[in-house]
Computed example of a mutant assay.
Amino acid sequence: MTRPFADTQVEGVFDAFDDTARPGLMGLRDLILDTAASDNRVGEVTEALRWGQPAYLTPVTKSGTTLRIAPHKSASFALYVHCQTTLMSDYTAEFPGRDRIDGKRAVLFGDPSEIDPMRHGWLISRALTYHL
Rank of each mutant, 00 (worst) to 15 (best):
Y56G: 13
M118Y: 14
I115H: 07
G52A: 08
A16V: 02
M1K: 13
R105E: 08
S125D: 13
V42K: 08
P117G: 06
V13W: 00
R68E: 09
S74N: 14
A48W: 09
A78K: 06
D7G: 06
P54E: 00
C83V: 14
A70E: 05
I101D: 02
F77N: 03
Y56H: 05
W122G: 04
S74Q: 11
G52I: 06
G24W: 01
S89I: 07
A106I: 03
S76T: 14
A48H: 03
D90F: 10
I101M: 00
I101F: 01
W51P: 10
Y56R: 06
A55D: 11
D18F: 04
L128Q: 12
L33G: 09
L25G: 00
T20R: 13
L31G: 11
T46V: 15
A70D: 11
G64Q: 00
D111V: 01
M88D: 01
D116K: 05
T92H: 04
S76L: 08
L123H: 05
E114Y: 06
L79T: 07
Q84T: 15
G52R: 02
D116V: 08
T85H: 01
H120R: 15
G121M: 09
V60L: 13
G27W: 00
H72Q: 08
G24R: 02
E114V: 07
L79A: 04
T92F: 00
F17M: 07
K62V: 06
A6S: 11
T8L: 11
T92W: 05
A21P: 07
D90G: 08
D30I: 14
F77L: 09
F17L: 09
T66S: 05
D15T: 10
P112W: 02
I124M: 08
D99K: 12
M1N: 12
V42A: 08
A127V: 03
L31C: 10
P59E: 07
D34S: 07
